[in-house]
Amino acid sequence: MTTTVPNPVLRVAPATPAEAAAHFCASLRFYADVTDVAAALAAGGDPGFVMLDSRSAQSWDQGHIPGAVHLPIALIPERAGDLFDESVPVVTYCWGPGCNGATRAALALAELGYQVKEMLGGFEYWVREGFAYETWQGPQCRDADPLTAPVAGACGC
């Protein structure tokens, strides 16, 4: 007797095209990727959003995105009103994909009435994709990691 092993990818049927479109459209409303954030910031002028680094002071000193506002998660309820305009979207980031600090910061801001997006990849991918960052010692930049970003040119997405 032959037993058929179910295809692990299709064990659960894919969503309908309409369900998939709704899901992915919603996802883009909640998330921005590092490359898009960097491009918006590099374009000059007002990018239309503010960056929030939700990590500790020690982490901020180790490295952060230039122009970001430093506000640890625990301080968001008491300090957000002094730092942010409710009409300007806030893009949150934390360490990286293994950390949910940016998600918790986005939730705290949304509960206070702010429009928010989370930057996928966090500070880790900002650095790994070769974008400049600031430390307590001054500006820094590393070469792009070829496993996360093209060495030359754009990814094309």
Rank of each mutant, 00 (worst) to 15 (best):
Q140W: 02
Y114T: 10
V91A: 04
G156A: 06
A144H: 11
L109P: 01
V12C: 02
G156T: 09
A110K: 15
P8R: 07
T35W: 02
A22D: 10
Y133T: 12
C155D: 11
D143F: 08
V34G: 00
I73D: 03
I65S: 00
E124H: 14
E111M: 07
D85Q: 08
G44E: 05
R104V: 00
P72D: 03
Q115N: 05
R104E: 03
P77F: 02
A74T: 13
P14D: 06
A74Y: 09
E78L: 10
Y133R: 10
A15L: 15
R142C: 11
R104L: 03
V116W: 05
P6Q: 10
P150W: 14
V88D: 05
H64G: 00
P146I: 13
P8W: 07
G96L: 01
A26G: 04
A110D: 12
P146D: 13
G156L: 11
Q58G: 08
S56Y: 01
D61N: 15
L109I: 06
D145W: 13
P14Q: 09
W60K: 05
V9I: 15
F131G: 09
V127W: 10
V34F: 00
R104H: 13
G44Y: 05
D143W: 05
A74E: 14
A15M: 15
V12P: 02
V90G: 02
M119S: 05
P97L: 08
L107S: 09
S27C: 06
Y133P: 06
I76N: 08
C99T: 04
A39R: 15
G81N: 02
E78S: 14
S87F: 04
G81F: 07
A42D: 12
L109Q: 04
E78I: 13
Y31D: 01
L28G: 07
Y133L: 06
G63D: 08
L112Q: 14
D46G: 04
A26M: 01
I73K: 04
P150Y: 14
